[in-house]
């Protein structure tokens, strides 16, 4: 086993192309997997010494979150928190204060857990993953990175270098809610990320609804977004939203919750998240 800490993305990509190489960002998943014997990397590639990857950059039309930025730094980034509170809702739920000091949203994405908290939140906000590999860079919607539990669409040698979030249109609100039995230190049993925009009258003009922990990867039910668009998110629209989310969920029974429970609760969460997103869109 080797430990490498390259100083450029290109060097990291070259190392990650080696057999048995694993990227280390926050380490909160990788070290647990190593401890349990689930993975035994031949090369551990620490991304935290690559210049720029530990920063959040703001451009006129986007926020760019480096792959090594821990969750705690997202919470401290005021402009980002104001623009996409839903994303911060999600990232701040990844583990405890201690985990927040390490875990990154890029890592959360690449770990490809169906219950990852930041993924529905990011996807709802239209986040793109900046993927760099031996053959250059590409930008893909975050929801296209995980393809199933523990599996990603990344090719050998590719890494997610950053997450790119567009600046939101006016009167946009976002929220992420999950259900866990404990208030903290838990894995989502069901979760919902929502981002929506209103016109001046309060009618929903655009919406993206993303479900987590109720399928092998995030589910983006078009019917859920349609239930909101064109309405003022009144009770009937919210009921339709909840029903559409429950209908789209394809969860399993496991130690964290029953199938039946997840289907019900994902609808409840969708309604509550929508209400929160609307409030935020209205500037409340």
């Amino acid at each position: 086993m080797r430990f490498e800490s390259p100083s450029t993305v290109a060097a990291a990509a070259a190392l990650l192309a080696e057999p048995g190489a694993r990227a280390l960002a926050g380490g909160s998943d990788l070290l647990v997997q190593m401890k349990s014997g689930m993975v035994q990397p031949a090369v551990i590639v620490d991304l935290k010494r690559i210049a720029g990857l530990g920063e959040i950059r703001e451009t006129p039309d986007a926020f760019i979150i480096g792959a090594a930025v821990p969750g705690a730094a997202l919470r401290e980034a005021k402009a980002l928190r104001k623009a996409w509170p839903g994303l911060v809702d999600g990232s701040k739920l990844i583990g405890s204060t201690q985990i927040q000091g390490r875990a990154t949203v890029a890592g959360n994405l690449c770990n490809a857990s169906p219950a990852a908290d930041s993924v529905p939140a990011m996807a709802a906000c239209g986040a793109m993953a900046v993927v760099t590999g031996p053959n250059g860079s590409r930008t893909v919607p975050v929801e296209d990175i995980p393809v199933g539990p523990g599996r990603t669409s990344l090719a050998k040698g590719e890494l997610v270098e950053a997450i790119r979030l567009p600046k939101p249109p006016p009167r946009t609100g976002s929220a992420y809610l999950r259900f866990t039995p404990r208030t903290e230190m838990d894995i989502a049993v069901a979760s919902v990320g929502i981002a929506l925009s209103l016109d001046a009258d309060g009618t929903v003009t655009a919406a993206k609804v993303v479900l987590g922990a109720v399928g092998p990867k995030v589910i983006i039910p078009e019917a859920a977004a349609r239930a909101l668009i064109g309405t003022r998110a009144d009770a009937a629209a919210l009921d339709a939203l909840a029903a559409a989310c429950s209908a789209a969920a394809t969860p399993i029974d496991d130690k964290r919750g029953t199938k039946e429970f997840r289907i019900r609760v994902v609808g409840v969460l969708a309604r509550r998240a929508a209400e929160k997103a609307i409030e935020r869109a209205k500037g409340k």
Partner: peptide, 28 residues
């Protein structure tokens, strides 16, 4: 409210860790 030993059909313990064997945390 939450603490329990959960066994799978294979008779193996499913939640052998503090993440899924949920003892109360301070904020609960």
């Amino acid at each position: 409210l939450n603490e329990e030993y959960i066994y799978g059909h294979d008779g193996r313990l499913q939640n052998a860790g503090f993440l899924d064997y949920r003892i109360p945390v301070c904020s609960d």
